[in-house]
């Protein structure tokens, strides 16, 4: 991508160029308001860049948005599950629209439940009847329902309490590894970034400060801010 975005006078994302490696996990990280979520939303087509183009698989995203969206899954902080549909119906919304036969969907749902360790007996529960962690598992199943090439996650663990978060973190990494899809994850948590990311992109005020492996950020910081950001997160833990 090669884009910029402003909201009125405020520049959310300055002109930047960024490529996401196919099959790799990229983590966008930075303090609140650094533009990481806006960047992710540009990838989904929910936000249109003022300048530049988002390129998806070699072609501009805007040129074939519907088609591209069928090839991407999207998970947000609170899951974005539809409260009027059960877990099964939430996952089934897109497959059904695409005309999948019942047994194909059943088989896929079984795979997904196994993958996300979601218990079968809760498949007919409504989101309001599920815990926060289970809701996120349903959201991941829904995002993966038609086996997309790309998975986009916006603070998927942000609203969970620490214990649930820990368990889901492990499961999520497991899922990423088993799927080997192109994954873009937004977080503000350095541990999470280090835990998931092959490539970490640290942003600040709409610009990329540094991108690289976690070791690069720790050992070869591109600016004092990188060290500052990493250290600030570390000091959250009691020594």
């Amino acid at each position: 991508m090669d884009v910029s975005k402003r909201y009125g006078a405020a520049v959310a994302v300055h002109a930047l160029r960024l490529a996401f490696p196919r099959g790799g996990t990229t983590v966008l990280i930075g303090p609140s308001g650094c533009g990481k979520s806006t960047l992710l939303r540009m990838l989904t087509g929910l936000v249109t860049p003022d300048e530049g183009t988002v390129t998806f698989d070699g072609a501009p995203l805007s040129a074939r948005l519907r088609e591209a969206r069928l090839r991407m899954g999207y998970v947000i902080q609170e899951g974005g599950l539809f409260p009027h549909l059960t877990a099964r119906q939430n996952v089934g919304l897109l497959p059904r629209h695409l005309g999948w036969p019942e047994d194909r969907f059943k088989a896929r749902l079984g795979e997904l439940a196994e993958l996300t360790r979601f218990p079968d007996r809760q498949l007919d529960h409504y989101p309001a009847e599920l815990s926060g962690g289970q809701r996120q598992r349903v959201a991941i199943m829904r995002a993966l329902a038609v086996d997309p090439d790309v998975l986009l996650l916006d603070e998927p663990l942000g609203a969970l309490d620490p214990l649930v978060r820990r368990a889901l973190q492990d499961d999520l990494r497991d899922i990423f590894q088993r799927l080997s899809k192109t994954i873009v994850l937004v977080t503000h948590d350095m541990h999470e970034a280090a835990f998931f990311g092959d490539l970490i992109v640290l942003m600040r005020a709409g610009r990329i400060v540094q991108q690289g492996a976690v070791a690069d950020l720790l050992e070869r910081p591109a600016a004092p801010f990188v060290t500052e950001f990493v250290r600030a997160q570390r000091s959250e833990l009691p020594a």
Binding site: T44, R69, M72, I76, F82
Partner: peptide, 19 residues
Amino acid sequence: SLRESAEVLGLPRSVILRR
């Protein structure tokens, strides 16, 4: 967030409206 989730799923407007 719900409307956007439906959009990114790749459903057409008419289906989003109805479902």
